[in-house]
């Protein structure tokens, strides 16, 4: 599981370091998934036991990381959607999707 997280982080970092808007957005989305998997792994992976603390309290799955995960997915979804819309608008207005051409204060 942690290897998958590592691979997702590597891909995401590579994409964020590239130059076009769309790749950067995809990169943040992939890192977001990596983070979600990491939270799930940190809760401790157990096999097939219910997320309830019954009478035999020896074996139960910790349900809190899954609740955190759900919240994180929703937030990540919303910010990614906003980011995509914004980068499309930036592409329309600025006329370029290359971050190299988005720097500088010459035109202020």
């Amino acid at each position: 599981m942690s290897i998958v997280v590592g691979i997702l982080f590597a891909i995401g970092t590579y994409l964020i370091l590239s130059k076009t808007f769309l790749r950067i957005v995809l990169g943040t989305s992939i890192i977001g998934h990596g983070v979600n998997l990491l939270i799930l792994t940190m809760g401790g992976l157990k096999k097939g036991s219910p997320p309830l603390r019954g009478l035999q309290a020896f074996n139960f799955t910790d349900s809190l990381p899954q609740a955190l995960l759900l919240t994180a997915i929703v937030i990540n979804f919303a910010t990614t959607a906003l980011f995509l819309v914004l980068s499309y608008r930036a592409y329309k207005v600025l006329g370029t999707d290359d971050v190299e051409q988005c720097r500088g204060y010459a035109d202020e």
Binding site: I16, I24, R89, A90, C102
Partner: peptide
Amino acid sequence: LRESFKYILVNMI
């Protein structure tokens, strides 16, 4: 638009 792109990226990370 230019600055908000950078701002959002930094804050998302």
